[in-house]
Structure formats: C-alpha cells, structure tokens
Simulated assay, not measured.
Amino acid sequence: MFNVGIIGATGYVGIEIVRLLQNHPEINISTVVSHSFAGQKISDVYPNLKNVFDMECESLDIDKISEKADIFITALPHGISKEVIPKLIQRNKRVIDHSGDFRYKSVEVYEKWYNTKHGMPHLLDISVYGLPELYRDKIKDAKLVANPGCYPTCSILAIAPLLKNKLIKTKGIIIDAASGITGAGRNTTLPFQFCESSENFKAYKVANHRHTSEIEQELSFLANEEIMVSFTPHLVPMKRGMLCTIYADLACDKSAKEIIDIYKEYYKDEFFVRIMDEGKLPETKYVAGSNYIDIGIVVDERLSRVIVLSALDNLGKGASSQAVQDLNIMFGLPEHSGLTAPALYF
C-alpha cells in the first residue's frame, strides 16, 4: 500500500479525494489536514463518511505530517501553497497541487492573471501540468504535479485533436462554458447562496477569467503558435458538472463523421475520454461523479464551422478524480485504479 496525505481535506475537492481514495485498492490515506477542523473527525464534518472513514483531522505541521506519506495532495487556494509546497519538496516529498500556482511556464503570465507575486519561480522548472492525456510520461516521475483547472481540462481535451491535426483556423476560437456551483469551492459568499443561484443562469468574469490564460498556454503548445481564445464561463444552478461549447472555423472541408473518426483515433488509448457517435451529444448527467469526459462533435456546413461539446464533472475529471489518475501514474499503478465507477446519472 502507498501512503498519501491530503492537505485541505475538508474543502469540496479535498473531501472528494478522500471519498475516492478511502476505497482505493492500493492507496492508504495516512493523514488528513484541515485548518478549520483540526482535532475533529472528518466524519463529523462530513457525516456520510461515518463508519467509513473516521480519521481525525490534523493541523498543518510540516515536520509531523511529512513522515506519514509518500505523496501529498494539496487542495489549497492559490497563493497559500507557497507556505506549504516548498517545505514538502525540501523534505523530498512528491506533491499534486490544485492551486494555479504551478500550472504556468511563465511567471509574468501568472502574475498578470492572478494579480499577485509568484514567489516560487524556481519550482516552475520542476512542475508538470497534470493532464494525463498530454503529459503522462512527465507526470510519472514528477516531483510536483500541477493539477489543471476544471474549465481548462474540459476545453483543452475538446480542442486538442483539432489543433494537432490542423483542422481549424487558430484565430477566433470561442469557448462558452457552464459549471456547477461546487466549482467555486466550499464558498459562503453571497453569489453562491441558494436564493442567489437557484433558478438562475449567469455569466461571470467575462473576458477576464484567469483560466483563459491556462487554456491559451496549453493550446499554444499544441499548435506550436500563440493561441488566444474568447472564453466565457457561466454558473449553473446544479451541484456538480460542466459543459463546454466550443466554436472554431474549419481550415478544410470535413464532415462531422470524418472529424469524429479523427477524434476516436487520437484518443483511442485513453480510457477516460469518450467520443460520442454522430448525432449524439454529451450531458452532465453522463459524467457527474466520474472521471470521464464525453466529447460530441457537430459541423455547421453553412458556416464551415465545427462545434465541439465536452462534458465532465468539475469535481471529478476537473479536479479530484484527475488527481487520483495522476496519483496512479506516479505510483506506477493502472491508471484507472479506483476510478472505474460510472457516473451518478440521478
């Protein structure tokens, strides 16, 4: 058994990792860290875990917890990680981080979009972007894995085959994305209260959401040229799930069937990427609670435009279960270990 510690275990991402790992056949949760609930059983914070996982939450004592695990998963807000991750790396621990602090290759881009000083540029040299379908070989031996954001995961995997096969024009890509409310974390601020979000559908951070830069970085690597996208996120009154609708102008004449065949070939070895047949489109209920991403494709022949729709669970493939997928790779385990459960559907 491999020992794993979870720092920030009582947030939505952290507790989803607990839910997944407590039943993993090869991994043992050896410590759970929570600033807000130190000294309490995690099953008192989340009663669904009673008699399933009753470990007591610890406070953040790096010296104490570092002896308990081989790899740590940190589910902390951006900026806070700089107080934790360098100390773990110094103690020769491997880390999977969920903040945006290590997803960028350019300090300047990070500081512009996050409006803060980075403070740890030396760690960017050793960090690996934690999208297995693109960086599996690097994740395997990485000391520091930066788990991608949910919007970038949903967008990048949906667009990647188009760029790699030069099927689209690289100017004018539009991404409309809608996320469940858990995408904001365990947040008590007014916009995420029930009466504010129920029976409501709204856009937010239009043209300036920080995940825009993360998407552009990875698409630029895929295309071998600078890519800029128009990205608009929306908040949907549901707990979990994400749907992206992506528009791009075709660079050549291709039917939907031809593009679908290209996608199926591109992702033929990817267990968690499901390409839908022509005429079928993804829905969040097909993926909620799972590590799958579903991708559907339509061609608007009148406009010579391809429309790609992708759906995943923002807490699953967009965060927690993708971290477990990375963890399996880092431990040399089968990539789908502990992750084969189907979506919840209801």
Rank of each mutant, 00 (worst) to 15 (best):
L157K: 03
I89F: 03
L157E: 02
K164T: 15
E111P: 11
N92C: 01
I126W: 11
H118P: 07
Y114D: 03
G100A: 06
G149F: 02
V128E: 00
L157S: 07
P161N: 01
A146Y: 12
E108G: 01
L134G: 02
I126K: 12
Y110F: 13
A146T: 13
L131V: 12
L144G: 00
N147V: 15
S127A: 14
H122A: 14
H122I: 08
A158K: 00
D125E: 15
S127M: 11
V95W: 00
V107R: 06
V95P: 00
N92I: 01
P132F: 13
D137M: 07
L124P: 08
Y129D: 01
Y110E: 03
Q90F: 09
N115P: 06
Y114T: 02
S106K: 09
L123E: 09
S155M: 04
L88D: 00
T153K: 04
H118Y: 09
P132V: 13
P152V: 15
G130I: 12
A160R: 13
P86W: 12
K105S: 05
N92R: 09
Y129H: 08
G149K: 04
Y135L: 01
C154P: 04
D97L: 09
L163K: 10
E133N: 09
P161Y: 00
S99H: 04
T116S: 08
P161K: 00
V95T: 07
G149D: 01
R94M: 08
D137H: 14
D97M: 10
D97V: 08
D101N: 11
V107L: 03
K105T: 10
D137L: 11
G149H: 03
G119L: 12
S127R: 03
T153E: 07
Y104W: 07
R94T: 11
Y110T: 00
V128R: 00
K93L: 10
P161C: 01
L144N: 02
L157G: 08
Y114N: 11
I168C: 08
K138G: 04
K164P: 13
P152G: 15
N115G: 12
D137G: 10
Y129L: 03
H118C: 06
S106G: 01
L144M: 05
D125K: 15
P121C: 01
I159R: 04
C154E: 13
N115I: 14
P132Y: 06
K93Y: 03
P86C: 10
K143A: 04
K140E: 14
N115T: 10
P148N: 13
H122G: 05
Y151N: 13
I168E: 04
Y104M: 03
V128Y: 00
M120Y: 10
K143M: 13
N115F: 06
I139W: 09
T153I: 08
L123R: 11
D97G: 07
Y110D: 00
I96P: 00
K105E: 11
L123I: 14
H118L: 09
N92A: 07
L131H: 09
L162W: 04
G119A: 15
Y135N: 15
V107W: 04
E111S: 09
L123W: 14
L131K: 08
P148W: 12
H98F: 15
P148C: 11
D137E: 15
A142I: 12
V95L: 01
E133Y: 10
K93G: 00
K164D: 14
I139K: 05
L123Q: 11
A158M: 02
I159A: 05
K164E: 15
P86G: 13
L157Y: 06
N147W: 09
P148K: 11
K138P: 07
C154R: 02
K164I: 11
P86F: 10
